[in-house]
Design a protein around this nucleic acid. Sequence first.
DNA 1: AATTACATACCAACCGGTCGGTACCGAACA
DNA 2: TGTTCGGTACCGACCGGTTGGTATGTAATT
Lengths: 202, 202
Amino acid sequence: MARTRNSLETRTKLIEAARDLIRAKGYSATTVDDICHSAGVTKGGFFHHFESKDQLGVAAAEHFSAMAEQLFATAPYCALQDPRDRLFGYIDFRTAMFGYEIAQYTCLLGTMVQEAYSTHPNVREACAAGMTTHVEDLARDIEAAKQLYAPSASWTSESVGYFIQAVLQGAFIFAKAKQGPEVALESMMHLRRYLETLFYPI
Amino acid sequence: MARTRNSLETRTKLIEAARDLIRAKGYSATTVDDICHSAGVTKGGFFHHFESKDQLGVAAAEHFSAMAEQLFATAPYCALQDPRDRLFGYIDFRTAMFGYEIAQYTCLLGTMVQEAYSTHPNVREACAAGMTTHVEDLARDIEAAKQLYAPSASWTSESVGYFIQAVLQGAFIFAKAKQGPEVALESMMHLRRYLETLFYPI
DNA sequence: AATTACATACCAACCGGTCGGTACCGAACA
DNA sequence: TGTTCGGTACCGACCGGTTGGTATGTAATT
């Protein structure tokens, strides 16, 4: 084993192992030993980088948020001129992700916050922050599209952003429950249909 | 302590304690000791009624499903003649529930299946079954409303039922993350608006 | 008398976290 | 150039407490 003794690399390996395990088993069921074994690090190494399991949860949420931000900031649809097209590009992009394995497209933040919201306040806060940031990013395109296609509509772009995320989170739950994306994909179709009614061409 | 030595009552107390604890802390973080303490039963009593924690999880899912079925089968809106009115009665009824405490209106099935989908197949199956049954019940009104108000629409009533549930599940996640129902309520409003577009009066 | 419905006491495995130690680094100094 | 040195990265044995689950006892019900 070529141990490279790279602090950042080890830390990242721990976080990514946590991300994958928590997405599959949940936060509580994922043990520190699990994470260490999966990352090829010992317990001593783990607690050198994180002072508690909770703090790793927070770090994982932040890491996930950063990854998502980067992913959706560099996706092909971002190059589109029309903000409405970018919004539907986002929807279609996320819909296409349901083609991968469940543990690859589900949201770490939504999974963690369900378990942690009342017992692990730091984790809850980190998840909420990540989700809020993502909605804010999304809401910028929604707002721009609103100015163009529905300037006098009564809804706020922020609430539409949250609605989109709610559908996604619910779709993830059904993908897990049904062990497949079929039902989730139909929900994404309904979501798209709704958004089309919001941004009717002038 | 008035020990009543009533088998069914003890079993129900265990299930309801599990329901409340799991909704607040998740399945894995809820221990058998927790449940026993909360229900006022010892561990011996617990394992007299359930042969494993998993089986309790299954029983809790079934209990929750039965309770929900009863709740939504006897709610005031069920008396309405028009299936479209019943559907919106359901939406408004569920929207109103966001006024209670988080742990009272969130869905045990959605919470459990997030954690259990890959590691506790029996629990996953019980959750999926309960959710499917609920959607089927709901889809009956949707189908009847479709016949009246949108007979030639291309969507299936089942998919609309799942969409409604997806929004609800997502709304629960945001209510937990945000520690309040505001964002969730806005999502319910968007959901209602969408359903209105589906069932436009003839 | 037999069965049911619990309580008590207990277990091995596992949990998050600690701790003393070690391998390795770059900088300072001779 | 070689040596020392303090700090960082990491190891792995260990700890007290907790976990799901069991073995056994006993009082009430049938």
